[in-house]
Design a protein around this nucleic acid. Structure first.
Lengths: 312, 312
DNA sequence: CTGTTAGCGCGTTCAG
DNA sequence: CTGAACGCGCTAACAG
């Protein structure tokens, strides 16, 4: 950052200070655009997420922004609103704006990932987190979704639950796929005859959560446990169960992914799976930083961090 | 956005398409840095907030990002972590990076605002929202903090409350100052003998909320109502009250600012003040957009939007 | 060791 | 109407 007047670095310290003070006083500023045009500097990192306003994503952005700032990077955020179309445009934008590197989590609509591949052509490093895809070889950061959901099923089983439902998202998204695999894995291992996963068609909202709860309890066989992939859905479910006078955890146990500490305080009757957001953000940033400085030989490492299960 | 090949605009549509397709195929991309260096384009907007990971701020960023994107702007986010020192650095960064305009909410430490004034020197338009300051004449967007807290006090009074406490933040921050003024205004108007405002010294966390509740109820006169400026603090207070076996709303009524819809569902015993985040974000962006295009004669308009009181 | 210059990619301008 | 050249701000490379 302090590379101004580097040619005069041999000057006495006070002289340098005087010059800088003079420059500042007269409103001199290094023009970053000129630097970037010359190709000597790239100082913008892009973070692409489906929705900035989700606790998980905003936390990730927050941590990355702090880290990046210390290294002299600026963070631009892009929001796809879960739309493939917008995601494509965003990637175009990123390429257009001569960005140093990209940290991304793909949208729910995304299955074809050609637009991400375009980054490689322009030598823009990419790191994926949370919602990743196998179709593209880049560094990735995830939670141990498979294992933690397996563990949840096992815990519930040991507590006597035999009709466990998994409320999840589209299977083409890695997180949901892995969690659902983990669910079925343990169901089979335990030899449970009952298994049911439920994927709301719409976006995750409280309303969708209510509908989901209605749907689940309209069936003949009522579950005695629900594993929920989203705390927003969980809130809706909780609300609807209260309406239907179904008690938690007496009638049905609930375990939910949830990243908002406020939620954990307010729903003591719900078990929580808390993702290691700090670690995920840290690792994603470090991987990108390496990729930016290495320029080549970037290993498509996959880093997996353990989620924290608060079972009660 | 589609300003490539503008000199050929008179060409037949299909010809233009062919050229663009050809250009894209061969990996041609307009160099934004060159454009910006020439001064013909500035396409980056900065949003400066104390903490990206607060529901209020992340929602604002989310809305602004969507709006800005439609107009061909990119949004860079900056986070001050409530630190004046970082805020100063961030403003330096913004100036260095030749940014088109700034939307900002100041940190809790900020009272001197010279560093914001620097923007004017470089003709970078500034719009402030939520946490604004009177010391600087720029367009501002706020909630009707004074009025809504007044109204809350009145409602509580009509419900029989006589010992109402206001849990708020540092008075040098406009939002807290205005809310506290609104509180005292109605207290005096109603001729209530009891008034007490409580400002936690630390950052707003659940832990701080717990401590605040302990402090409030360690005094001789116990309140029969609490107005709380932060939903995170409110959560801590709620938790602590439960510990102390004080019932809400029977023993003490609680009214809290809170922007997270999930919270409203989960705490039906708490009244909520919901800020019009969409409107605030919209207005801030529109004001900035005008300022960017007008270049001069920018009126320091103040826009105030009504918060929504859900009193129960 | 110091001063000058070329060129990054673009659009405007000026000459042809 | 078309094409060449200039300059935005910077620094690496080169000449003095």
């Amino acid at each position: 950052m302090n590379s101004k007047f580097t040619t005069q670095l041999f000057l006495k310290e006070d002289t340098r200070k005087r010059i800088q003070a003079y420059a500042k006083k007269h409103g001199y500023k290094t023009n970053m655009n000129a630097l970037q045009l010359r190709g000597s500097v790239k100082n913008v990192i892009a973070v692409i997420v489906p929705n900035i306003n989700h606790v998980f994503f905003s936390k990730i952005i927050s941590v990355i922004t702090n880290l990046a700032y210390k290294d002299g990077f600026i963070v631009s955020v892009f929001q796809t609103n879960e739309s493939l179309e917008i995601e494509k445009q965003v990637l175009n934008s990123v390429i257009l704006n001569n960005i140093a590197g990209v940290i991304a989590s793909i949208s729910m609509e995304t299955s074809n990932v050609e637009h991400f591949r375009a980054l490689k052509k322009y030598k823009i490093p990419l790191v994926m987190f949370d919602r990743v895809t196998d179709k593209i070889k880049v560094p990735k950061v995830e939670s141990n979704n498979f294992e933690v959901v397996s563990e949840v099923v096992k815990n519930l089983y040991q507590d006597g639950c035999r009709r466990i439902v998994h409320v999840t998202g589209p299977k083409k998204i890695s997180v949901f796929k892995n969690r659902n695999k983990g669910y079925y894995h343990m169901i089979e291992k335990l030899g449970l005859p009952y298994a049911s996963s439920c994927t709301p068609k719409k976006e995750f909202t409280i309303e969708t959560g209510k509908e989901t709860a209605k749907k689940i309890f309209s069936k003949k066989i009522k579950p005695d446990a629900i594993i929920c992939d989203s705390d927003v859905l969980m809130t809706g479910i909780l609300f609807q169960l209260k309406e239907m006078q179904i008690k938690v955890p007496e009638d049905v146990k609930i375990v939910s992914f949830g990243d908002n500490p406020v939620l954990n305080i307010l729903t003591p009757n719900v078990s929580s799976i808390i993702q290691p957001m700090n670690e995920i953000a840290n690792a994603s940033y470090e991987l990108l930083k390496n990729a930016i400085s290495e320029k080549e030989n970037i290993q498509p490492i996959k880093q997996i961090f353990n989620a924290n299960l608060i079972y009660r």
